[in-house]
Design a protein around this nucleic acid. Structure first.
Lengths: 130, 130, 130, 130
DNA sequence: GTGGTCTAGACCACA
DNA sequence: GTGGTCTAGACCACC
């Protein structure tokens, strides 16, 4: 039942990324209860301390709220969730353009490269590939 | 004369990234001599061991060659350099699309997001920005 | 408790060679934990940085995997280990034949020389010799 | 006209190895004059200091003799040359068997491995392959 | 506890 | 001069 993590990133960040992705995709809705620390730790095959750190980080970002004795819940402040999604999107685009320009590519080449990729390969894409 | 490094990435990687960018952009040409370990260490304000590590990593990647007692040189195997550039480009695009799709965006939204960014903000972008 | 190293080869390579030999001989099995950096440094009488370099090199070769905060483990990808063993074997044979032929020996002389050696001297050979 | 050297070994050793191989193969005979330092340096595309070091090393081994003002000559003491050849051969075999046994191979497997190699691949072998 | 990075300073072989 | 290795000692993030 334990999952695989890549070595390059802290595990607690990788777990947070997955949860955040499910939240911004609306698979987890505002007010939904997240699994308990122990349960998620078991599912993920990691130390409960690591999950605890994930939840702390997400609470710091305002994405979840913990209610003592009840658990951890997706925040119901929807504007926060939307803001996070917009910010993440902008960060991703910004980093992408910076990286491509650092390679010496022009704006036109960047767009072309993306289009080629989406036409050839993007159709089969899913999040379960290795 | 010392430069600034961001805390999130190892310094020796950041130095390598800068050099690699200059190489793939053809600011440094095949056969060119790189600064000596000690010289680049002084320029960058880091310990010579750190630069040494940068050069080791780049040699492992096949980007540079070291000649005993003479120095470190950009490899003259041009196909390797091209291969590296292509691979880096593909990796960047791949990560970009994955990240955007993880946010729940469609292919059309990804392209739109990029186009908006390049129109609004990309024009001022240049290699001298921080 | 400190061990001896020969001057001709880097210490971090010699330590790696020993570990790799134990792994391909199945004295260390896939999934086994290697000693911590500090522990092996103490055992070997070298600086922890040197052992660190050994482990980095072995990870680069795909022989071991490091799990953050947990330690360094023999990879469980058994095919990689077998591939490394085969490659090492081929490299050794290749170098041997090249060296012998460079001396002007024929294929028959090479085989004879090896047979003579194994009959006369090879019998006493064992893994505990210095 | 300059030749290629591998990075792993000192150039002055690689040059010595080539000369010694030609001597033990009797392509260079006792009493033959070797090229002058400057000439060999030009041919090999290296610094004359490097060739000088090659000749010093070979003189130390008793393989060549330098006569002031005349040049460097293959020693006419044939027993020395034979002794060197025998010693080199033994060293090569010894290292080969040690390396193979370190991989956990038995004597039978070592002989089999060598035979397979010589049958399949050894026929096309020559010293000019990359 | 673990591995990863960095500095300071030293020594070495090589060209 | 060059790169390569090693030690000593420190700090860090992660689990």
């Amino acid at each position: 039942m334990s999952e695989e993590f890549q070595a390059s990133k802290p595990i607690y960040i990788q777990i947070a990324d997955r949860l955040i992705n499910r939240i911004v995709r609306r698979e987890l809705l505002p007010g939904d209860k997240l699994p308990s620390v122990r349960e998620l730790a078991l599912q993920s095959g990691v130390n409960p301390n690591t999950v605890q750190r994930t939840y702390s980080e997400m609470e710091r970002m305002g994405i979840v709220e913990t209610r003592r004795g009840q658990g951890t819940f997706v925040t119901e402040k929807d504007d926060i969730l939307m803001g996070i999604k917009v910010r993440m999107k902008n960060d991703i685009i910004d980093a992408f353009v910076k990286n491509m320009m650092d390679l010496g590519l022009t704006k036109g080449e960047i767009i072309d490269g993306l289009n080629n990729f989406l036409v050839e390969d993007g159709g089969e894409r899913n999040e379960n590939r290795p």
